[in-house]
Design a protein around this nucleic acid. Sequence first.
DNA 1: TCTAGATATTTGCATTTGCAAATATCTGGC
DNA 2: GCCAGATATTTGCAAATGCAAATATCTAGA
Lengths: 150, 150
Amino acid sequence: MGPLGSYLPYLLNRAGARIATSFGEEVRPLGATLQIWRVLAALRERDGRRMGDLSATTSIDVSTLTRLVDTMEKKGLVARRRDPADARVVVLHVAPEGRRLTRKLLPIAERYEKVALQGFDAEEAEQLKAALRRLYANMDALESPHKVRG
Amino acid sequence: MGPLGSYLPYLLNRAGARIATSFGEEVRPLGATLQIWRVLAALRERDGRRMGDLSATTSIDVSTLTRLVDTMEKKGLVARRRDPADARVVVLHVAPEGRRLTRKLLPIAERYEKVALQGFDAEEAEQLKAALRRLYANMDALESPHKVRG
DNA sequence: TCTAGATATTTGCATTTGCAAATATCTGGC
DNA sequence: GCCAGATATTTGCAAATGCAAATATCTAGA
């Protein structure tokens, strides 16, 4: 077998980590982090989501998310509400401050998208994304049967 | 802009994290972790590397690597040696136990490679890897100028 | 030779992370 | 209406992480 640098998981993590770190540094001055951005992006897509839903779509562990939301609430970015129909459920709503921050983060996220994909034409970019979705789905085959991931 | 699930960094991290977690679970019974595997793989490629070199090729922060190597030394997987020519430098050598573990991990890594790339033909797989290398390289454009990454 | 600045690694420390257990609430069956 | 098991979230805790400071050593120049 070849060198470390030819392994897919390695290449994947390396690229992902680098983008994540770089993005994180960029948004820190705005009081944001990559994870905060993910939550805001998910809520922008659909507001009032429950914790479990957010955890699944952001790929942030639900216990980590609880604490992240604590922080975001203190910053006034989001507000927790109990679902009156089912008191176990907590739904998250963006607050005005959160909308403001989202507006600032959006262009940064788009810029990262553009820079990361520099030199890719539209088709190549779409192929890459499709491949990444496929990879993710392929892992079902190895997942322990008792676990379910979104 | 589209939903979170159409952002490249998100797709990248999601796929990477899932593979990493799954691999980690699989090798835990052997007393290994993903990071341990990375170090062993790097040493398999070339033994006697220095810490900084290993940090660059594995993408593990050098301070994290120091502590990881502490652990690996305790497990008898590797041995630290001072470079006699330059006493600042520490070089790492695989120990017999490390070789044994590497032999066990190799087929697992190959299996993961295969499963992750299920449904990809050789050309598609190579394209994907090339794309990931390109992504990584593209990030140079955004990297703060004072920093240098391997 | 002595010193200032560079380089390599380690250590200190605060944050993030995720598993597992705890808590709260709901549902269906009795 | 009550209980057992399911579901949603939070909390406890220990490990991993990474930045910045500390330490050790080297190099080049005065």
